[in-house]
């Protein structure tokens, strides 16, 4: 089972657990949790440099871009235009051509604006970026994103930060049958069993942030998530038994005493 590599646009990923860098107490906690998660991908936002106070430490002093794949996102963008601008700036910073495209449609649910996401994806793919779009768990929209050149799709499991877990496993399954690219569950998972469930469904990876950063012990939860992903993936590849209504004996009936 060692040949089970995740490859997107020619880039090989060691881990099927991807993590965000937000909401931690400090950069040291970010570093420790990221390390405990076993992930080699960490998402970052693109923000204005603090010109006034340069004493502030930089996340990338704690998260080594040589060790981790930096995945800039367009978090906070509500229009295709802003997302394109942000993604292009991220690419120009010169660390990576990867971008997690996120165009938010509404600040209460943080659900994606799929139409604007598709519009931005078209432009960014033409500009040569590797566009990984955050999208509703909608098989048709996922197919359209792949059609314009996204090498993977990132459907949500539940609203960002909600911890509700995999709310629609059936749609995720249909998405996996519809698109022939990796499917990465992005957002909404709450605990290790959620990520294990996503992996058992056959998803290629899980991206999460709040479930680790918001846990009472983020370092321990990061490790739990690592095992959740590993266990779920192995179970998927092993092939589970079918569900049956009645019992099936697991001990032989031959040779019982008194028979």
């Amino acid at each position: 089972m060692n040949d089970d590599k995740l490859v997107i646009a020619g880039i090989e990923f060691k881990s099927r657990l991807w993590v965000g860098s937000g909401k931690y107490k400090d950069f040291e906690e970010t570093r420790r949790a990221t390390e405990a998660s076993g992930s080699d991908v960490i998402t970052v936002s693109v923000r204005r440099v603090n010109i006034i106070d340069k004493s502030k430490e930089n996340l990338l002093d704690y998260i080594d871009p040589k060790k981790y794949k930096i995945l800039p996102n367009t978090a906070g963008c509500y229009t295709a235009k802003d997302a394109i601008r942000t993604a292009m700036l991220a690419a120009e910073a010169g660390i990576t051509k990867l971008v997690k495209l996120e165009v938010i449609g509404d600040d209460k649910t943080l659900f994606p604006d799929n139409e604007a996401t598709l519009e931005a994806a078209k432009v960014l793919v033409k500009e040569g970026l590797i566009v990984l779009p955050y999208v509703s768990d909608d098989p048709i929209m996922c197919r359209k994103l792949v059609d314009v050149g996204c090498p993977a799709v990132m459907p949500l499991a539940a609203p960002i930060g909600s911890g509700l877990g995999i709310r629609n496993p059936y749609n995720l399954r249909i998405i996996m049958e519809t698109v022939k690219v990796p499917v990465i569950v992005d957002a909404g998972v709450g605990t290790a069993s959620d990520v294990a469930f996503a992996m058992e469904l056959g998803c290629d990876a899980v991206l999460l942030n709040t479930a680790i950063a918001g846990a009472k012990d983020p370092i321990a939860m990061a490790e739990a998530m690592k095992y959740g992903v590993l266990g779920g993936r192995l179970a998927y590849r092993a092939g589970r038994i079918p569900k049956k209504l009645y019992a099936t004996a697991s001990s032989p009936l031959d040779g019982m005493i008194g028979s």
């Binding site: 909401k23 936002s45 923000r47 010109i51 942000t86 991220a90 600040d107 930060g161 957002a187 709040t210």
Partner: peptide
């Protein structure tokens, strides 16, 4: 001018501070 860099952040949340 806008001068930007990579900051902490996994997903969209309101308290990330300055947006472009």
């Amino acid at each position: 001018f806008e001068v930007v860099s990579f900051m902490a952040g996994g997903f969209s949340i309101a308290d990330f501070g300055l947006r472009i």
